[in-house]
């Protein structure tokens, strides 16, 4: 509604303007959400270069296919879906180079080992932990646990049922259990991991 003076145009309005030929509208829409879209791409593909490629693919695709948006979901859901799909596409095309390389395996074995000396150099290794997950599980877990999307929204983004989202997240969490001490250390790197908790095995 043009009369709503002072208010930012809604996502839907920006998308409509873009389809109608406004050359600024899509940029405004994309900039509004780009940090979150970046986070989704980065956590899903676990590589900044690949994430940039995926996000660029997604942005171009959304720009060109905006007229196909039917309004049966929120614009942000639609944008996220395109980004997730582009990210998973990247991973599929990269399948000849396995996402988990020998180096990653090595790093993860080191992480899983109860070695308190390693508790400090943990921050960058969230990505390493996420890499052990199959891409579909990772995409679900990233949306729900890392980025805080409600299960229903994640389901809409991923184009799967809420039950499947829950199931993928559950299996992903179980798979990350061996790294929980490491992840815990990442949460507050200053707090040292209590040996009583870590030395159970």
């Amino acid at each position: 509604m043009p009369g709503a003076g002072g208010q930012l145009p809604s996502d839907d309005e920006l998308l409509r303007r873009h389809v109608a030929g406004d050359s600024e509208a899509f940029g405004e829409l994309f900039r509004r959400h780009r940090d979150r879209l970046w986070a989704v791409a980065l956590r899903t593909v676990c590589d900044p270069d690949e994430a940039a490629d995926a996000l660029q693919d997604a942005m171009v695709s959304a720009f060109r296919r905006a007229a196909d948006f039917r309004g049966d979901s929120a614009v942000t859901t639609w944008l996220h879906r395109i980004v997730v799909n582009a990210s998973l596409d990247r991973l599929r095309h990269k399948a000849v180079h396995p996402v988990t390389s020998a180096d990653d395996e090595h790093a993860l074995q080191a992480l899983a080992a109860p070695d308190p000396a390693r508790a400090s150099d943990t921050r960058m290794d969230v990505d390493a932990a996420l890499r052990v997950l199959p891409p579909q599980q990772r995409a679900a877990l990233v949306l729900v646990d890392m980025l805080g999307f409600p299960v229903a929204d994640a389901a809409a983004i991923l184009g799967i049922s809420a039950g499947t989202v829950k199931s993928r997240c559950a299996r992903a969490r179980a798979r990350l259990l061996p790294y929980v001490a490491h992840l815990r250390g990442n949460r507050s790197a200053s707090e040292s991991v209590s040996p009583a908790q870590g030395g159970d095995g």
Binding site: F30, W38, D145, L177, R187
Partner: peptide
């Protein structure tokens, strides 16, 4: 704890170079 730890990881901001490229 896995969920809590993942939730506590700060969301990365888009690097300037990527923003410029896009």
């Amino acid at each position: 704890e896995v969920s809590a730890a993942l939730a506590a990881v700060p969301a990365p901001a888009m690097p300037d170079a990527v923003a410029r490229r896009l």
